[in-house]
Design a protein around this nucleic acid. Structure first.
Lengths: 337, 337
DNA sequence: TTGAAAGCGCTAACAA
DNA sequence: TTGTTAGCGCTTTCAA
């Protein structure tokens, strides 16, 4: 069996409560007694049982961080931001990989209710009714990193989000400002919130500049490199009548770029590209991708802060925080010929 | 307060143990009673407390999976492999991001001892004495995914590993077979185990083919894209007298390729490259990188299986499993001119 | 300064 | 078929 405070109590002749006080430094305890107890604890390889402590204190000191896709560099910085804050407060960040699946997301929400953690940061492509309902009924606090598509006035959870519509608007605007009039878009499933919003930003921007929107110029992928390649294949087969392209994320842009280059395209001469995410990969290809910074680190950091306010300060009121995207220019945009 | 079985007991008029039996389907329980209890549980939004259950059963049904670097696609498949196995057995995989730091690794080992999980899969660049000692003394089982550098006969933990020496040997051999005689290497810190082994495979292969080893042809990076770029910069400044290059991972190769292309190199004409990892990114650039499959999925899967044998079957004997790398050819290798 | 006792939520052996 | 009881490891109140 694992060593418990009772083993230490027996070894030292003190009671379990004295051992507890000594180990935690709470309450009175004779320095000599404390020394003996600490020594015995060390000798017996003691470490406290989180199960026992959690049961008593109703706190596990764990935070669950759900991410839909570990393949996606978009989340790295968010994790870092959250971890930095949580560790500073002696909370531990446990990552849960939800595989872009509602069923998995619901599963982890159930685990949260089973006290696997004291709270959850949830990243999702798509907050369904089922998910938001579960979040609203959850006993432990959840912070989402997207605005939910159908907000109810009785939604109770906090949200930190980046304005995806503005982000794609910014990307599109960047090309328009350079003189592009024919602009295509590579985007994720428009039936999911993220895809819908990003497409919307593109449409809004075209409209505001009096440019026509054409269904033909909308290429739908799934945020992976592979889908970027498929999109490039379609472009190669169908031919293109656009000089610029905005991509809903860096990975798809990567796939598009590599396949087009393989087919003999020169970038940005033959096509200007602006992407979203500003991940490390935007700078990992040649030419470097001009990309929109989605403030990932700040999202993670702020989410963790909101969660800790709920847990430590017992905040009850709702907070919704919106962050603004920013453009990072590299070499993938050129004035069209 | 969160709903407990006592709340359900009170609501239905049955005892807590009957409620427990009804909810878990263990032991006798009148179907009608069970129906009433399940209904009440649902109405009260009941979910079991993992803390209480873990305390009683001494099992949390969580596995901790430590990874040094979430930025690195190398681990994606491992996580997938482990998750697939664990979920099938009703265990949950919690990822712990150790930031390539011994202190963090030790911290998570402590958390394991505090019963944050029933076992751990540990990926590390470098298993120090401190870490292996803690693993040997850990009450819960740990599986490592590297051979430890200084094995002791009393090491007790399981290991699943890929032969890094053979992998780099294979990469080097691939270039030699194509006719390359001057081959450089981009590798990680040779003071860490992974770097040391990969360098060793390169050296062994050169030696076996009667080719000279030159310190000048060894470029040290840290497995990131950025360090690949720095290496490319050095190559550009110092000039090169080699026609082939092996890279210790895909990300560094990516950095090297993009920077060299930016400087006007054409690949593979000006330089042939073979990399290790065979991650998605090997296929995401142009030309596609010939890369060595490090059997990541299988490592994850097997690790989880070994862990479950320890936990569920109480296996005591040690297992060490070695997997063999395999070459995946793409377009980054050419006969030298 | 220390110890006894109760209780966090759950399960299981045993009794009824 | 159901209930009583004890105990998992820990903390905390209260008494000594």
């Amino acid at each position: 069996m694992k060593t418990t405070i009772y083993d230490i109590a027996k070894a030292t002749g003190f009671s379990a409560s004295t051992v507890s006080r000594a180990l935690n430094g709470t309450g009175y305890c004779n320095p000599k007694t404390k020394a003996k107890i600490l020594e015995a604890a060390h000798a017996l390889h003691y470490s406290p049982s989180n199960a026992g402590r959690a049961l008593k204190s109703q706190r596990s000191n764990r935070i669950l961080f759900c991410i839909p896709d570990i393949m996606n560099p978009f989340y790295f910085e968010m994790i870092q931001g959250a971890t930095d804050v949580l560790n500073r407060h002696n909370f531990h960040c446990m990552l849960c990989y939800t595989q872009h699946s509602e069923a998995e997301e619901l599963k982890y929400l159930d685990l949260l209710s089973e006290q696997y953690g004291d709270g959850m940061i949830m990243v999702s492509f798509n907050f369904s009714e089922a998910i938001t309902e579960k979040i609203n009924h959850a006993y432990f606090p959840v912070v989402t990193t997207n605005l939910v598509p159908k907000p109810h006035t009785d939604d109770r959870f906090d949200t930190v989000y980046i304005d995806h519509i503005r982000a794609m608007y910014l990307a599109t605007q960047t090309l328009i400002d350079k003189g592009h009039r024919q602009i295509a878009i590579a985007v994720g499933d428009p039936d999911e919130q993220t895809g819908r919003e990003r497409l919307r930003g593109y449409q809004d921007c075209l409209k505001d500049h009096g440019l026509p929107y054409k269904d033909l110029n909308v290429f739908v992928g799934d945020y992976t490199i592979a889908s970027g390649k498929h999109i490039a294949d379609r472009i190669l087969v169908e031919g293109k009548d656009f000089t610029g392209l905005v991509s809903a994320n860096d990975l798809m842009a990567l796939g598009i770029v590599s396949r087009l280059q393989a087919a003999g395209f020169t970038l940005p001469d033959d096509l200007s590209i602006v992407s979203l995410d500003n991940s490390d990969y935007a700078d990992a290809v040649h030419p470097g991708l001009t990309s929109v910074d989605m403030k990932q680190y700040e999202i993670g950091k702020t989410s963790a802060e909101l969660l800790l306010e709920r847990i430590l300060d017992k905040r009850q009121s709702r907070k919704v925080i919106r962050l603004e995207p920013g453009l990072v220019e590299r070499q993938s945009v050129k004035v069209p010929v």
